[in-house]
Nucleic acid binder design. Structure first.
Length: 647
RNA sequence: GCUCAUAUAGCUCAGCGGUAGAGCACUUGCUUGGUAAGUAAGAGGUCACCGGUUCAAGUCCGGUUAUGAGCUCCA
């Protein structure tokens, strides 16, 4: 038997090494620089500590802080070794729970009798820096289940004990320690070999989190942090977060006077004139798109008797989220219990059910800008992104099983056009397949899942499968778009439903002359107008495309002598339905420009004596910060041309 | 819904037991100024709501509501 093994590096090159060679030794064999920078390595794709050894031929990859994996390992060490130890140093009675990495950072959950608040973060951070400065080596020992439990039971780390007890493993529990500090932590690793490899970090926030994420369990304290290779990267990340805060739609909405929310109607939007003009522009656009794509627009009641919700199943399954209304008895002959519709689908089936449908009528595509109300838990509301009263760009397609595929393809094409025209270049699709508990035969599920998948494949769009994540009534597609700063938003959805047509007796007469159940496809492209407008505001930092901009042009006068001329101009623009604000205030032009710039008005016409005598308009472009002068008619036609919606 | 925090002028915030403050916005006067803040004066507040402690409560305590950050939820 050979005493050497062959290791294969990521570039395909191979090296011979003795059996039992450590990760660190491999790194040294490749180069001194790498040995210094190495923080962990992988063996056949499994991440290992540098001190771990390799005893058979394997694919090896050495990690440094320059790779995503390396950064993640470092963040993990900062959480599990540095933050955890700092917590124990400052709050010796604290019980450590878990400390995983998350995107760009990490968190650590712990239980503490002593209250830890955001004001304590600098103190904890200082302690962490102290720990890092010790540059302790990190080493690990392997233990059996029994030993591991004893280790943590001895120091009253109840959560660690629980984690080990509940583990399916019997041995190989890894305990990491730092030099001779006495600190130990349970971890699957790997970790940095030494704390001197820790880069730049910062604790960002503190919040509560349930043990194991279950709201029935006790609430632990969670400290979030972010960690990077060096100070420069850390700063870059913090700047990015600031940028995201700057485009917060709640903040911009105040500055732009778009909408407000108030205590008497939590989660319901009071749209102001400027916000509503945006809403209307967007809705008109979607309306034209949908009608051009074979939908009929309908409108159905907002308040509907509980009987329909009982029949649809919502009364059973969704009642917690429904606003229930009861007529004041004094004023009503009969007492009826109604609910504000949380969804439009049952009402759409009622429209479908009027008149006998033939297979020749299918597919029937009904669309509604349906105003829905859902009683969302109080802690979940967030500006326009999560509200209790909202309007969906809802639609239901009643079709045969055979039509699912072509309807899917048509829907995705429409959705793709709309996203592109609204400025979102790419989106991902998630296909959710049958869950454990479901209605409908396997045969129908097979057919529907295959139809959805086949439609995506034919359009050659990448997608991922979320096995078992479908609704109980059918498989679905979710559409996730990416905004200008890389955040993902799930907006569109396309869901097959084998349940509701049955419950609400939707039927059609087939070629064979007998009655059949149609399949119902629930679909939305924007999701809700409220949320989508929130996304648009953030995506564009408030600088919306001209056709959506609340105010398209502000006419600013330099001196009051030209007021009459500015008023005449406004009338001209008004004739072309442009949204124009006239600013005749007794202020300097610089002041007016500044104000309207802050309000993100895309065009400003500066009107002074020069323009008046030449009968021209000087138009200043917000995005380019430059000014051009036009004849009046030229200016009007330019703006009305540019402000057209994409369809 | 849970944890923690917050709630003072239209907005952003300071004040933290002893007669309510700033900047901006607003109104008025002066200024008619040419491309991102002209100038002076004035007006503006049951300090979220309900209760308690105190001679005295934006200020301390309890509750309610809303908002924020997380968590949970989003058939």
């Amino acid at each position: 038997m050979s005493k050497e093994i062959t290791i294969t590096l990521p570039d395909g090159s191979q090296k011979q090494a003795p059996i039992g060679v450590s990760g660190h030794e491999i790194a040294s064999m490749i180069g001194v620089g790498l040995a210094k920078a190495a923080i962990a390595f992988s063996v056949d794709g499994n991440q290992r500590d540098l001190s771990d050894t390799v005893s058979k031929d394997a694919d090896i990859s050495i990690y440094t802080l320059d790779s995503d994996e390396g950064l993640e390992i470092m963040r993990h060490t900062v959480a599990a070794q540095v933050l955890a130890r700092a917590i124990k140093n400052l709050y010796p009675k604290a019980k450590l729970a878990i400390g995983p990495t998350i995107e760009n950072g990490f968190y650590y959950d712990f239980l503490s009798d002593e209250r830890v608040s955001i004001d304590d973060l600098p103190k904890i951070e200082k302690e962490m820096k102290k720990i890092v400065a010790e540059k302790s080596n990190i080493s690990k020992t392997i233990h059996s289940k029994k030993e591991a439990i004893k280790n943590f039971a001895d120091i009253n780390e109840d959560y660690k004990v629980k984690i080990i007890e509940e583990s399916e493993q019997e041995d190989n529990f890894q305990l990491y320690s730092q030099g001779d500090t006495g600190f130990i932590d349970l971890c699957r690793g790997p970790h940095l070999p030494s704390l001197d490899k820790v880069g730049a970090f910062k604790l960002t926030k503190i919040a509560g989190a349930y043990w194991k994420g279950d709201s029935k369990n006790e609430m632990l304290s969670r400290i979030y942090g972010t960690a990077w290779k060096n100070e420069k990267d850390l700063k870059k990340h913090l700047t990015l977060i600031e940028e995201a805060e700057k485009r917060d739609h709640r903040k911009l909405a105040k500055e732009m006077d778009l909408f407000h929310l108030q205590e008497e109607a939590p989660g319901m939007v009071f749209w102001h004139a400027k916000g509503w003009s945006m809403y209307v522009a967007l809705q008109d656009y979607v309306r034209r798109k949908q009608i051009a794509n074979g939908y009929e627009e309908i409108n159905t009641p907002m308040v509907v008797d509980r009987k329909l919700w009982e029949a649809s199943g919502h009364w059973d399954k969704y009642r917690e989220n429904m606003f229930i209304t009861e007529i004041d008895e004094e004023h009503a002959n009969e007492k009826r219990v109604n609910a504000l519709k949380p969804m439009n689908c049952p009402c759409h089936v009622q429209v479908y059910n009027q008149g006998l449908k033939s297979y020749r009528d299918l597919p029937v595509r009904l669309a509604e800008f349906g105003s829905c109300h859902r009683y969302e838990a109080s802690g979940t509301m967030h500006g326009l992104m999560r509200v209790r009263g909202f309007t969906q760009d809802d639609g239901h397609i009643f079709c045969t099983e055979d039509q699912i595929e072509s309807e899917t393809a048509e829907f995705i094409t429409l959705l793709s056009e709309i996203y592109t025209e609204l400025g979102f270049d790419s989106f991902d699709i998630k296909l959710s397949t049958r869950p454990e508990t479901r209605v409908g035969s396997d045969e129908v599920w097979d057919k529907a899942e295959a139809a959805l998948e086949s439609a995506i494949k034919k359009l050659d769009i990448p997608y991922t499968i979320e096995a078992g994540e479908g609704a109980f009534y059918g498989p679905k597609l979710d559409f996730v778009l990416t905004d200008a700063i890389g955040r993902e938003w799930q907006c569109g959805t396309f869901q097959a439903d084998f349940n509701l047509p049955d419950r609400l007796d939707a039927e059609y007469i087939g070629e064979d002359g007998s009655k059949h159940k149609p399949v119902m496809m629930h679909r939305a492209i924007l999701g809700s107008f409220e949320r989508f407008i929130g996304i648009l505001i953030e995506n564009y930092s408030g600088k919306l495309p001209l056709w959506l901009a609340p105010t398209q042009l502000a006419i600013l006068t330099v001196t009051e002598e030209v007021n009459w001329y500015a008023e005449t101009l406004k009338e001209k623009f008004d004739e072309f339905n442009l949204r124009v604000d006239l600013d005749l205030r007794n202020e300097k032009i610089g002041y007016k420009i500044r104000e309207h710039s802050n309000a993100k008005v895309p065009f400003m016409a500066v009107i002074g004596k020069e323009e008046m005598s030449a009968q021209t308009v000087s138009i200043r472009n917000l995005s380019e910060n430059k000014t051009d002068t036009y004849a009046i008619d030229e200016a009007v036609s330019k703006l009305s041309e540019e402000s057209k919606s994409p369809n």
